[in-house]
Design a protein around this nucleic acid. Structure first.
Lengths: 226, 226
DNA sequence: CAGTGGTCTAGACCACGTA
DNA sequence: ACGTGGTCTAGACCACTGT
């Protein structure tokens, strides 16, 4: 029902449309109409006011990127940008003490490390390192990883593990030597760091990700409602 | 109904609770139960799988801050932190050319400028400048602004204007002279900048905000589902 | 197969703005 | 007084998962 409503409301567009009208127009009961309107409201296409009505939100030109987990390359490419990614390194490694603490691992546990450089027009944009606490038989090679552009998709299809939530920390910092070298900037230049704890649907902490972004030319955009 | 469910599900807690059980336990029909469960799922307290059941998400200790619009001081204070704010400056001003373009203003229109410094334990943490395209009769003084900790609350109570959405851009940069001075850091030190376009419920672009955060000691945290 | 959540019907009453 | 969205009742059928 929601799909029909989206198109239909796009057509007649601006003025408004009450639940009653939609019930009659689509010959359905009130429940699906309400659900559809609820979803449209949640997504920011309309806003609703009790006793007043439902009003379309005007001129939302493009849907903002939002905060996808591990879909940056695909997103940028969808925008028509020349975005590629290159696996710097991937291996099963012993986590550092710090990482053990974050992920609650025992010393001796191994994690899958994936270090990836995302390039925009051949120029380094982001250096992302993911550490995943997953079974040993999930060890994709470089070629596979570069093909899918995100480990998380592979995790879903091969292991049935869905990353459903991320706790993000964003901060600015100065690039250290390694970061500067990979990103092609100078030591101490400002960088934007996003660190994310990754959770599955049942809230199991399954990994951690650290993404270092070039400060110039990169702005991280998203929309927050409410 | 949702409130009862939250407490009730907190009690019996871990195992699970089907819609049917809740219907019987609370002597209500399925609709409100479903709505309540939907909300709990949206907020990340439970996750639901078709034909399997509803499962509580384990150990969500504190609700993450999220991206409140203009509630930072209050939020930090709620955490028990010594957070205060100081109005650096407030006035009706002529927007710069750049700001005119962003807000779609005509030259000659005035905007309300509010420059505020947020301090954590007496030390500068964030410098936030808000520019609001609002009626002339809304001109709160410094005292009022410092009392409420956010212009947005005043906007709601005095003008009935609700800020319901923000388009954020986050990036790292080096502090310029003015920023460095206000934040007590050195010129060129990394800072985290959050620029936000502010929208009302009917999607009218009503203002713009630029917040410059000290890079050290400050991490911007939030949670993204899906 | 029985049980789950996802969707739907066809009603009902309420709180709240607008006129 | 009327129309709006918010909430609720009491049913129904379906797709899917587990046994």
């Amino acid at each position: 029902m929601i799909e029909e409503l989206q198109t239909a409301d796009g057509e007649n567009g601006r003025p408004f449309s009450t639940e009653q009208e939609l019930v009659q127009r689509f010959h359905v009961s009130r429940a699906p109409v309400r659900q559809a309107l609820k979803e449209l409201a949640d997504e920011g296409y309309v806003y609703r006011e009790r006793a007043k009505g439902t009003f379309p939100v005007q001129e939302l030109p493009v849907r903002p990127p939002g905060l996808e987990l591990g879909g940056l390359v695909g997103f940028l490419r969808d925008q028509g940008l020349d975005c590629t990614s290159k696996i710097v390194d991937t291996d099963r490694v012993l986590p550092t003490e710090n990482l053990c603490a974050i992920l609650g691992l025992k010393p001796g546990d191994h994690v899958l490390k994936i270090s990836r450089l995302i390039l925009l027009a051949e120029k380094p944009l982001v250096w992302a390192q993911s550490y995943l606490s997953v079974s040993e038989d999930f060890q994709p090679n470089k070629r596979e990883l570069e093909r899918v552009d995100s480990v998380f998709l592979l995790l879903g299809s091969e292991q049935g593990i869905v990353i459903s939530r991320g706790d993000h920390q964003i901060y600015a910092s100065g690039a250290n030597r390694e970061e500067a070298e990979l990103l092609g900037i100078k030591n101490g230049d400002p960088v934007l760091v996003i660190e994310t704890k990754l959770y599955t649907r049942n809230n199991r902490l399954i990994g951690w990700r650290r993404a270092v972004h070039r400060a110039d030319e990169y702005k991280f955009s998203f929309t927050a409602n409410r």
